[in-house]
Amino acid sequence: MILVDLALTFGVLSLIAFGGMPSVMPEMQRLVVDVKGWTTHAEFIQLFAIAQAAPGPNVLIVSLIGWRAAGLAGAVVALLAVCAPAAVLAWWVADLWERFKDSPWRGAVQRAIAPLVVALTLSGGYVLCTPTTPDWRLWAIAAGAATAMLALRINPLWLLAAGGAAGALLLQ
């Protein structure tokens, strides 16, 4: 049953998405494209683009994947599945976290997770712009965006627009 499959797949991603959704993009792409075959590599980056360009949390890419796999019900199930387990955890941990404010273990865990989040976010970017074989044009657009983001303080929406224009010029 595909809805159950969607719920389980995104439910697991929910619980390992330390630092937010960018961390699990490599795993999400691996599961959705390579393991389950719900989208192709090329479609995955396009759905990601739509979720980035629309307002709201970028987690909504899972609704687009769910919709591709199983229609509107798939979209709703995927979104709830990626949010609910983490939400339940947040519910319980919020109090616990406060209580362990001064514990050395809390600091150790925080410091341990920091490099992991950096590596996974970096992997997410790399995997997205390397769909199958390396494509210098996608790398060039991504490098330009990363540089512009670090150098300029502007709304990322402008960068997305510029990237769309670059895509129209380079990718046809």
Binding site: P22, M25, A42, I45, Q46, F48, A49, Q52, A53, T121, L122, G124, G125, Y126, L128, C129, R137, L138, W139, I141, A142, A143, G144, A145, A146, M149, P156, L159, L160, A162, G163, G164, A165, A166, G167, A168, L170, L171
Partner: peptide
Amino acid sequence: TGVGATGAGLF
């Protein structure tokens, strides 16, 4: 796809 590559760059 260009927008997607830009999003990847933002990551």
